[in-house]
Design a protein around this nucleic acid. Structure first.
Length: 604
RNA sequence: UGCUCGAUGGUGUAAUGGUAGCACAAGCGACUCUGACUCGCUUAGUCUAGGUUCGAUCCCUAGUCGGGCAGCCA
């Protein structure tokens, strides 16, 4: 055995203040198994901010051999829809696939918290399905399996409310919304007790049962926690627990006309599922005392979950507010929630961004309590990094300009070997056809070149990648003076294997044969906003980038005709591309540019 | 100004009483049949003032600046 070296290997897993707490709890034996949860409300699409929460909760679960439940926090039927349940389920499955899907907590379809006895005391509990083996496949969409729903706990939540009333810790209040607000006071001024605060337990019990029975109209009464109307923390001034809403619920059906509020339902949902660490964003810090109050007031028999808060992710040049995102959709700034320019998971996926890259980005951003604006360059970096090893190289010209290789005969075809991915350990090749007429990128030619221009210029030479070096002889223009074609000579001795294959030229450019290529629609995206912090703008609609989408008809090497949706391509020297999942069809291909290649020249 | 959370290079994030490290960005260079990738180098930081201590990014006090909270939303 050797003594330990000074070398400190990079930690295999990230470390942050929440993971430290989890590690401490485990070390202290406070929990046998770590259970976290990702609890979206199904009232919209998941976005990149949720990705951070997903990766934190699932990350902690997988690092500790635990479970992370997918739970819909569906306590407000007025705002929620089944469509969102489905899209969220799809997005979560996509993001964790191959990474933490073995930690996904789901339940038997239709199951509810079951009664049990703990130390002689009654209890209710709903565990996630135990996997037969760590690798057994289970997804939220498997047969007879479903995610958790807070609405599955309505019956149990109601029973807990009765208990609270019996303990004198909750009361039915007849104040309307406006008066409730008035009585609550303000941060600097203490509130006043509701005139209904001291109703008898019997009357509260009766009234609450009748609320459930549907005897009262919306807003007529509410169930409130009896805490302290003078508390400095506004959330402790007798917060509402239940409100009357005569509407059907997307998951619970039309069984209920009273619905619990977040602060009451969330902590108890965590408890019922045996959550150990309930992780949310900073705006809930003020709610934590209430979270604890509800659980402690009920004197529950099992170990209580605890809430921890972290700072949400704010990526530069993006907006992550459901309301504003909705404005982009309804205002037709984008084509929908899954528009490839959107920061939604469905948009990012459609754009071609691999889930692994997104994970690397949000995990790399770290977990703190500091309101940080994350540089979008970091995301661009991880996307390129991921795609660099993933994407096969292809030749494609976005904005073609025609070249005539005057020393090649019409119909002559020279086959060239092109590397599919130089990053592979053993790179493979394919054939691309060189013919008399080819297209090159119009950027790769300059009649009046700027300084240090390596590409094609009058009298200059350049290499057509995988083919040979060509020399520009003549620029042909039409009557109006516009360039119609460039006439060049191909030096076939510079082909791979040829006598002059080692000849060096400064520039190597991409190209496609005019006859052996296909036309395809390419959508080139840029950031949606012109400022780093559009969310901080007085009107974010005024800083929308008018050039966020450019639709181009490109010429691509013919092998791309059989491209499939799950493939990723690098058009050499241009960028990374993926087929559009919605608009592309065989014979009418539509590619999305996921991201350009890093360009350290044109920006100078 | 009631409660509450926070402040480390340009950006994000480590270091918990003992050498301020990493990533991205930026700059320079090498390599190159992708001006990509890769590799090397460089620039650049502990909000302020006191205190405790041999020693403070870390602990204490005060201040400054910034965030969050007064839905029958989550």
């Amino acid at each position: 055995m050797t003594v330990e070296t000074n070398a400190t290997p990079a930690p295999a897993t990230p470390s942050d203040f929440i993971r430290d707490i989890v590690a401490d709890d485990l070390a202290a034996g406070r929990h046998q198994k770590i259970v976290t949860r990702f609890p979206p409300e199904p009232n919209g699409y998941l976005h990149i901010g949720h990705a951070k929460s997903i990766c934190l909760n699932f990350g902690i679960a997988r690092e500790n051999n635990g479970t992370c439940n997918l739970r819909f926090d569906d306590t407000n039927p007025a705002k929620e829809e089944l469509e969102y349940v489905d899209s969220i389920t799809t997005d979560v499955n996509w993001l964790i696939a191959g990474w933490a899907d073995h930690c996904l907590g789901v339940k038997v379809k239709g199951s509810h918290p079951a009664p049990q006895t703990i130390n002689g005391r009654p209890d209710h509990y709903l565990a996630s399905i135990e996997r037969s083996s760590p690798s057994s496949q289970l997804s939220a969409t498997s047969a007879n399996v479903e995610p958790f729903f807070a609405s599955d706990y309505f019956e149990q939540l109601f029973a807990y409310a009765l208990t609270l009333i019996e303990k004198g810790k909750a009361y039915v209040c007849d104040l309307n919304a406006e008066d409730t607000e008035t009585y609550r006071g303000s941060p600097e001024k203490p509130g006043q007790d509701s005139p209904f605060r001291n109703r008898s337990i019997a009357e509260n019990l009766d009234l609450f049962q009748r609320m459930r029975a549907g005897e009262f109209p919306n807003g007529a009464r509410s169930l409130r926690a009896k805490i302290d109307m003078t508390a400095p923390n506004m959330w402790l001034r007798d917060p509402l627990l239940y409100r009357i809403r005569h509407v059907a619920h997307h998951h619970a059906g039309d069984k209920w006309c009273i619905y619990p509020l977040y602060d009451y339902a969330h902590c108890l949902s965590d408890y019922l599922e045996g959550i150990t660490h309930s992780i949310c964003t900073l705006e809930f810090v003020d709610h934590r005392p209430l979270y604890d109050w509800v659980l402690e007031s009920l004197e529950l028999p099992r170990t209580l979950p605890h809430q921890y808060e972290f700072s949400k992710l704010i990526p530069g040049y993006m907006i992550v507010s459901k309301r504003k995102l909705l404005q982009l959709v309804t205002g037709n700034v984008v084509t929908g929630w899954d528009d490839p320019r959107m920061p939604t998971l469905s948009g990012l996926r459609r754009r071609g961004i691999p889930a692994a890259a997104l994970r690397k980005f949000v995990i790399g951003a770290g977990v703190t309590k500091f309101d940080a604006l994350t540089d979008i360059a970091v995301m661009e970096h991880v996307v390129r990094e991921e795609l660099n090893s993933l994407a096969v190289r292809r030749l494609g010209v976005l904005r073609p300009i025609k070249i005539i290789l005057t020393n090649l005969a019409e119909g002559e075809v020279i086959e060239c070997d092109a590397t599919n991915n130089p990053q592979d350990e053993i790179p493979t090749t394919r054939k691309v056809a060189l013919t008399r007429e080819v297209f090159i990128e119009s950027d790769d030619f300059a009649e009046v070149p700027p300084p240090k221009y390596f590409r094609l210029k009058p009298g200059g030479e350049v290499r057509l990648k995988y083919a040979c070096i060509i020399k520009l002889d003549e620029i042909v223009k039409d009557a109006a003076g516009a360039i119609t074609e460039l006439r060049c000579t191909a030096d076939l001795t510079t082909r791979a294997g040829g006598p002059n294959s080692d000849k060096k030229v400064k520039g190597t450019i991409h190209w496609v044969s005019a006859s052996h290529s296909i036309a395809a629609e390419v959508r080139v995206y840029d950031r949606l906003f012109t400022v780093a912090e559009p969310g901080a703008e007085e009107d974010f609609m005024k800083v929308i980038n008018p050039h966020s989408l450019e639709v181009i008809t490109a010429r691509l090497e013919s092998s791309l005709a059989t491209a499939t949706l799950d493939e990723r391509f690098q058009l050499e020297r241009v960028g990374y591309f993926a087929l559009d999942s919605k608009d592309s069809a065989p014979g009418k291909l539509v590619f999305n540019r996921t991201i350009s290649l890093k360009d350290t020249w044109t920006k100078k």
